[in-house]
């Protein structure tokens, strides 16, 4: 009986809405190279970008694959106008000289997608 109840509580706690998820849903940490090269990890916020651009702009026109870690983006590419650099060029959005605006994450964060309110996104199961 006790075991049954524990399972129920566990399942309920997983399913309860409104648990405090600190990161915003869809936030991405990019830290394949940042910290090794002495910078903070990059925090990419889907919520901020989708207010301004439809998904297809980055995931079709700019060629970002829809899987965290599958895009090998280097600063040289960005400076040359590829990937983020298509907009982050000082014209549409701030340019690559504003390092700290993107490299704004806590040190030690692994690359991944964060902020799941309930399901925590792909990879949890």
């Amino acid at each position: 009986m006790g075991g049954w109840l524990a399972w129920l509580v566990l399942l309920a706690s997983l399913a309860l809405p409104g648990q405090p998820a600190l990161a915003e849903y869809g936030d991405v940490v990019l830290n394949r190279r940042s910290e090794k090269e002495g910078m903070r990890p990059v925090i990419f916020s889907h919520w901020f970008h989708r207010i301004r651009f439809q998904c297809k702009v980055c995931h079709q026109e700019l060629g970002f694959k829809m899987r965290v870690g599958s895009n090998d983006v280097r600063m040289a590419d960005i400076i040359n106008g590829k990937f983020c650099g298509m907009c982050h060029n000082g014209d549409v959005a701030w340019g690559p000289d504003r390092c700290d605006l993107c490299h704004s994450g806590k040190r030690g964060l692994p690359t991944g997608i964060y902020g799941g309110h309930e399901t925590s996104g792909p990879g949890r199961w």
Partner: peptide, 18 residues
């Protein structure tokens, strides 16, 4: 306070808040 951004980052105060 989101456990992702470094509170000491110069970006805090410049980036739009959710």
């Amino acid at each position: 306070n989101d456990d992702l951004h470094d509170p000491a980052s110069p970006a805090i105060g410049l980036l739009q808040q959710p």
